Simulated scan of single mutants.
Amino acid sequence: MPVLEIQALQKEYPIFASLSDRLKTALSLGLSLPSRKHRAIQDLNLQLGEAQSGRIVGLVGPNGAGKSTLLRVLSGVTKPTSGTIEFQGTIRSILELGVGFSAELTARQNIEHNGVLWNLTRRQLIKRTDEILEFAGLRDYADQPLKTYSTGMQMRLAFSVATLEPSDLLLVDEALAVGDASFQQKCLNRFRQYRDSGSLILIVSHDMNLLKSVCDEMVLLDRGRIREHGSPVDVARTYMDLVGKSDEAISTTRSEDGTLETSLQVQNAQGLAVNRFHSGDQAIFRIRVLANRQLSDLTCGIHIETATGSLAFGTNSHLLNQKFAAGDEPVEIVYRLKMNLGPGKYTVGYSIHRGRSHASDCFFWSHVSSSFEIEAPSNAMFEGQSNLEPVIEILPVSD
């Protein structure tokens, strides 16, 4: 299998201060460029692939890290400002699914027309149309115009055409977001099949669980530079630490009657403000309370809800036999929770009241004060809303 070698790669984009600057550049045929530039890729050095076998490589990073720019440079859509790229073999890129499709044509007609863009002959396309439709799950809709398809159906068809034939280097930008879980597994199995036949596949995605399940290695980009290159588990953890840091200042909220000033901050076990955790991590919720008069026998409650509004967890200091008082000196209530939650997005809110429930004698209530995301643990994948930390044994049975 050919090896991809990138040396000292840089890609810059001009920053135009005004419309006149754009016109000046256009009229000069690009000879007059503004002095200010944005460097999307900076001095990037990378070697991917092995001569003996194929590889699936995940490319991750926060928004603006340069992932899509790198794929566009590798695919030839845009030229690098400087540096070299060496690769001897065929290259195919899936950067925007559905480009070239016509809404008025049927699926069969679109396969014939669009497949030519992927360097497939009409003879190949006619012979393998049924195979494409079967993979996309669209055999029953083959003769319907594309304008009657849902977006997901169109994307499945586009992916099936684009990946019909393997290539030495396949570049994929967020294309795995199409379709349901069943279709995603079909896509991953196709990638594994191409990898086993010697292809180098470079995938950009924000889905760490998906990448960890399919990639042989991962590369983390940050501000156009390689921050880490290694095993999927290690790179995913670094990525989570990078994007999970929260730079937002703690916002203080005042109760409607002005009695209380409160704030909530979500932290990891090291005391850093974050908005992402792995399932099983420890989280710290710090609630600060300041009152304009002395209040005694108070209860502080906390509740965590799923993205659909279902209660995932709730408790309060009354249930935990911890009452407190508040006055002109701030007091802090600290909850330490082991986040045995399933992967997904969650919100957290809190309340200050007396007694067991906030239904009566409530001084402050916030349904949503912050949000965070849970990723499945790197070494123990699971499904569902709760991580029950299973332990499995396989034992011989003796009669």
Rank of each mutant, 00 (worst) to 15 (best):
G115L: 03
S150R: 08
Q185W: 11
N316H: 13
R286I: 14
Y239R: 01
G61Q: 08
S205K: 05
N340K: 05
S371M: 14
E248F: 09
L164F: 10
D234I: 00
D361M: 03
L23A: 15
A359H: 13
A249L: 04
G327Q: 03
P80W: 07
E96C: 00
G271I: 01
A325E: 02
M218R: 10
E393D: 12
D328N: 10
R55M: 02
T253E: 04
T81Q: 09
N379T: 14
G115V: 01
G66R: 13
G89T: 11
M218C: 01
S310A: 15
N189W: 06
N114A: 01
Y335F: 15
N268Q: 13
S53Q: 11
L4R: 10
R139I: 11
K11A: 13
S205M: 00
S369A: 03
V243M: 02
S68M: 06
R108F: 05
E12Y: 01
L210M: 02
Q42R: 15
E131I: 07
R223K: 15
R288E: 11
S32R: 09
K24Q: 12
L157Y: 03
L298T: 11
L105M: 04
L117N: 09
C362F: 08
L319S: 11
S360Y: 04
L157W: 07
R92F: 01
S150A: 04
S386F: 02
L120K: 08
I126C: 00
F135P: 07
I203W: 03
S310R: 10
Q294Y: 15
L59P: 01
I374E: 00
S20E: 14
D247F: 04
Q282L: 06
C187E: 06
R276G: 07
I392E: 14
F87S: 14
Q294V: 13
K79I: 05
P343A: 08
I374H: 09
K24Y: 13
H229W: 02
F285D: 09
S199A: 14
Y346C: 02
P62E: 00
L19Y: 14
A359I: 05
L319I: 14
N316Q: 10
N45E: 04
D196A: 02
L210C: 01
P34N: 00
D241G: 13
S160E: 07
A283M: 13
I203P: 04
F382M: 03
T90Y: 12
R254V: 10
A307Q: 13
I132T: 11
L46W: 05
E86T: 15
D399Q: 10
G349T: 02
Q294L: 15
K212L: 04
S182F: 15
V391Y: 02
T238K: 07
G230V: 04
R237Y: 00
G66C: 14
Q193P: 10
N63E: 03
I250R: 14
R72T: 05
Q385K: 00
R293G: 10
E393P: 12
L210E: 05
V57G: 07
E5K: 14
F183M: 11
R354W: 05
E5P: 08
L70N: 06
A291D: 09
E86M: 12
P2F: 00
D180I: 08
G280N: 03
T347A: 06
A177H: 07
A359F: 06
Y350N: 05
L242P: 12
D216Y: 04
S35D: 15
V219S: 02
F364Y: 13
G66Q: 10
S150H: 09
V397W: 08
L176G: 08
S263P: 08
